[in-house]
Computed example of a mutant assay.
Amino acid sequence: MPDVAKAQSRYEEAVRLRRVFRHGASPEAALAAVQDAAIATFTDTGKWSTNFAKDAAKAHAEAVVWQAEAVALRRAEDALKYAAEDARDTMAPDVLAHLNGRLTEILTAAKDASTALGDVTTAEGAIDAGGDALDAWRRLTALLSDLRNVRAAQWDVLTSVSHDDERARLRMWAAEGHGEVRGVRLDDVPEHVRAAVRSQSYSIAQLVWLAHSGAAYVPTSFDDLQADVMAATEPLTYDDRGPLRDMSPRVTPGPAYVPSKVPPQSKTPNLDKSNPRPAPPKPNAVVSDREATTLEHF
């Protein structure tokens, strides 16, 4: 993108100018140096310098000019830094979209060229086969360089518009092989392709696989890449409340009826003392006799 390149170029030039700018002293330091020199001369000779005012004015004026330019260069560097970052952040989606379109062109051409290879898998085999196979191998070699450039630019842009914690995650995702194919779990990607993605060292075999997979893409943003990583790594189905449980109602049979045990010495409680004691209940169990309580004697 011309605007991004221009803003970055201006910022880099401002940095260079500030670094090569001559060293100098502030107006206060310049005056202090003239004063120290005059005091030292007076201490040694007992005579005050007749050129003190002229020397002080000259040193102060030169220091003011130096400080003004130094401050201007610092401000220019800061302003151009923010302008470059703003242009980069603003244009990042367009840059990534452009890279995605360029990737599509590369892989389309690679897919067309790979059909002429047949069973050829090495440069030596292409030389031996000659003809269309050799021409296809040469085209794929050139496309391989383009693929590397697109991937390098992709990670540069994503890193430049991300915060520090996001950059750490970008490095981790790149090392794991994310950010290359969409809608495909990493376990379903051949190991030789994953190894090439992790090392960013592609070969013709990986280029051909990406071309025929139809899943290669360039993320449009950090959030886009993060969503793809989550989709590629999380379980296909899960229950955030734990394993499924059978919650259908269950019928528990009631306990079998067991009649109360009534020993022979049982008595019916007398609820009304004005009436005679009721007849005792009919016993249905035999238990050992027990000693009568105090209340049963009355």
Rank of each mutant, 00 (worst) to 15 (best):
M1W: 06
M1H: 07
M1Y: 06
Y11S: 05
E12T: 03
E12Q: 13
R19S: 10
F21M: 02
G24H: 04
A25Q: 15
A25P: 06
P27D: 04
L31K: 06
A32N: 05
A33N: 08
A37D: 15
F42T: 11
F42G: 12
G46M: 10
G46P: 11
K47M: 12
W48D: 08
S49D: 15
T50Q: 13
D55R: 13
K58C: 08
A59G: 11
E62D: 15
A63C: 03
A63E: 10
A68R: 13
E69F: 09
A72V: 07
L73S: 05
L73R: 12
R75K: 14
L80K: 07
A83S: 09
E85M: 02
A87F: 06
D89Q: 13
D89R: 15
A97W: 02
E105A: 05
I106F: 00
I106A: 00
L107G: 00
T108C: 06
A109L: 13
A109G: 10
A113K: 03
A113E: 01
S114V: 07
A116M: 08
V120F: 04
T122N: 10
A123Y: 04
G125S: 09
D128V: 11
G130N: 02
G131M: 04
A133P: 06
A133T: 06
R139M: 07
T141I: 03
L143K: 02
L143C: 03
R148Q: 00
V150W: 00
A153H: 07
Q154C: 06
S160R: 00
S162E: 00
H163F: 04
H163M: 07
D164G: 08
D164E: 14
L170K: 01
R171C: 03
A174R: 05
A175E: 12
G177C: 00
H178Q: 06
V184H: 06
R185C: 04
E191V: 12
E191G: 09
R194P: 04
A196F: 00
R198P: 05
S199G: 02
S199A: 14
Q200K: 01
L207V: 02
H212N: 14
H212G: 10
P219Y: 05
T220A: 12
S221H: 02
F222R: 01
L225S: 03
L225M: 04
L225D: 01
Q226G: 04
D228M: 01
A231F: 08
A232W: 08
A232V: 02
E234N: 13
P235L: 12
T237Y: 07
D239C: 10
D240Q: 09
G242N: 08
D246R: 07
D246I: 02
P253F: 05
G254C: 04
V258H: 06
V258E: 09
S260E: 13
K261M: 10
K261L: 10
K261H: 07
P263M: 09
P263R: 09
S266D: 09
K267V: 15
D272L: 12
P278S: 11
P278Y: 13
P280L: 07
K282A: 15
N284C: 04
V286K: 08
V287C: 10
S288P: 13
R290M: 10
L295N: 11
